[in-house]
Amino acid sequence: MTFNDNARINPGKVSRRGRNTGIAVGGGGSLLVIGLIIASQVLGVDLTGLVGGGTTGGGGQEQGQPLSECTTGEAANNSINCRIAAAADSLDTYWESELPTLGQTYRTTNVVLFSGQTNTGCGGATSATGPFYCPADERIYVDTAFYDDLRSRFGSSGGPLAEMYVIAHEWGHHIQNSTGIMEGLDRQTTGPSSDSVRLELQADCFAGAWVGAASTIKNDDGVVFLDPVTEAQIADALSAASAVGDDRIQQSTQGQVTPESWTHGSSEKRQQWFMTGLNGGPGACNTFEVATP
């Protein structure tokens, strides 16, 4: 997707941190598990061993620096950091108006860009963790080097919408957390119909809902953030969703597919629910009401 060059962007939802060499690993309990399970499946590496031991992860978080250079759509079209800032501004605007129509109250979130490693409310995170949402501090964490891996390691076609899909998916997790959808779920079980998979597919659906409305969302000046999405851009987003499907990751890392261990859903289902949201909006995203999501 392409931002309107003349659109004014509020970059206040995104901050940037430098390299932190004194991270605290561990703590966060089940909250850390959410992010690490997500990362483990995306990267094909078991990171859940970070849970337990070490110091608690909630303290000592470094302050991020604002992205003061990211104030226009033109900047967003030329810089990945600014593109994330602009996407966050659009996502915040969208959910602030959309959630009340669904009978919910919106609570905002923030995106932290980091390089190498950082502290979070869920414990320590490194670039190997991949993008994740931390319920403990209600923030999204992204090392943008992940986008290179998405193309080179996981085979996504890349592109701006593929990058923004990742942010929109994690924002979807914030919607789930802040509205109580995460409460009472059994995130210990796995498999195509598990609560973990339903949670991830719903986040994909929420991401699609934002994309479907994106070209109508206006900034505080009444100017639309984004130009209409093209079929090629949707294909890029679907490529990213497919690239991080459980079956595709397992096939590439293990040489076989074991559906009983899935936590995110198949490539086909991730694409399907993204399109469900794009065409039907967030009201069509109740993955917990269908027998097989």
Rank of each mutant, 00 (worst) to 15 (best):
N219M: 07
G222T: 05
G222I: 06
G222A: 05
V223C: 06
V224I: 09
F225N: 07
D227T: 07
D227N: 12
V229F: 01
T230K: 05
T230I: 08
T230L: 04
T230F: 03
E231H: 06
E231L: 11
A232N: 09
A232Q: 13
Q233D: 15
I234K: 13
A235S: 13
A237P: 09
L238G: 11
L238S: 12
S239D: 12
A240K: 02
A240Q: 09
A240M: 12
A240G: 05
A240W: 03
A241P: 04
S242H: 14
S242W: 12
A243M: 07
A243I: 06
V244A: 07
G245M: 06
G245A: 11
G245R: 06
D247S: 06
R248M: 04
I249V: 14
I249T: 07
I249P: 00
I249N: 00
Q250S: 11
Q251W: 07
Q251G: 10
Q251L: 15
S252F: 11
S252C: 12
T253R: 15
T253K: 15
T253W: 05
Q254K: 14
G255S: 09
Q256R: 09
Q256I: 03
Q256D: 02
V257I: 15
V257S: 12
T258K: 03
T258V: 09
T258F: 01
P259V: 15
P259S: 15
E260I: 12
E260D: 15
W262S: 06
W262G: 01
T263C: 02
T263G: 03
G265L: 11
S266F: 05
E268P: 04
K269S: 13
Q271V: 04
Q271H: 06
Q271W: 04
Q272C: 03
W273I: 03
W273D: 00
